[in-house]
Nucleic acid binder design. Structure first.
Lengths: 169, 169
DNA sequence: GTGAGATACTTGAGGGAGCAATCAGACTCG
DNA sequence: CGAGTCTGATTGCTCCCTCAAGTATCTCAC
């Protein structure tokens, strides 16, 4: 420290805009909740949160199958992330591959009976855990508010892809 | 499951409690925002979001130093996570170690001048990015609401450690 | 002062996921 | 048809972070 004398806290970080507060709140909330649920899920069923989300989406899709691309979009993972995640689920026989007659490029991920069984077991405890954590802290109205607010954030990916082109999209 | 005939979407996942909605909203919001900011920060300054947070906390602490434990608590990382993160920052000479006269177990992490310089450069673009993303989507009142709601979540860590003991804490 | 227990930190092993590059199949247009 | 482009998926490389152990230190009771 070359100029330690006036190194008082206030000088360096005075504004701290409200947007930042919200952002670090989001970070902390996610970190805390995520770690907790991940541990619980992993301990009781050997699943990560994303595994669980993916199984949920598959289970509630027509025929229990989804293209990998669509899956990626739903859980907000990269294509490669999905591939690796599904690798794991396939190894555990919770999902299987299925090919598409109409388009040879696509591989469906399809939930197996075993996957459904595990999901419904996991759902019980996990969903209850989630519900408990949130219900403990928020009223139904607050939950709605929170959900409504959070839903506005993920619209970002578009802005990411075409920074210059306005009308192009 | 074994009775696939009636496998219509609604049958399998009817309730979908409000708590769950909020939770996946949080997951998605975090995933989207995090990836975006991480990429920006990494591209422009070679920092991850956590690197940035840590530098922020150090910069605004007395003497620009903090115990690793306290740092961990602030950014909600594991002790080992902090160690590795600081490894990286030390390698880049953005922080350095300092020992504590009173307690030989603790190692302070102290931000270097170089760290402060990089931080203030990064702060400009990163904070602006955050502000833009949030300001674009939320009114000042909504921001406050959101912040207030999110702040209630991370109180969990305690409940994690002492599940049975109520009064003990 | 010695031993039990808490606390601060580090390390080894392993898993999750992102980016960039690559490949294969599909689509478009001359 | 054949070249060029897009799109879905996979792989190599790399990073971040967690858990489980391990080490060093401090604290306190006896």
């Amino acid at each position: 420290m070359s100029t330690p004398a006036t190194a008082d806290t206030g000088t360096t970080a005075p504004p701290r805009p409200a947007e930042l507060e919200a952002w670090v709140g989001l970070l902390r909330a996610h970190a805390a909740a995520t770690r907790r649920f991940n541990r619980e899920l992993m301990a009781s069923h050997g699943l990560t949160i994303n595994d669980f989300e993916v199984l949920m989406h598959l289970a509630s899709a027509d025929d229990g199958r989804l293209r990998r691309v669509d899956l990626a979009e739903r859980v907000l993972l990269t294509a490669s992330g999905i591939t690796r995640l599904l690798d794991g689920l396939e190894r555990s026989k919770l999902v299987c591959k299925a090919s598409c007659a109409a388009d040879a490029r696509v591989t469906y991920a399809e939930i197996t009976p075993r996957g459904r069984a595990l999901l419904s077991a996991a759902r019980e405890s996990h969903v209850e855990g989630v519900r408990a954590l949130f219900a403990e802290r928020f009223s139904p109205e607050e939950l709605q508010e929170l959900t409504g607010l959070l839903e506005r954030l993920p619209l970002a990916p578009q802005a990411d892809v075409c920074p210059g082109a306005d009308a192009a999209c």
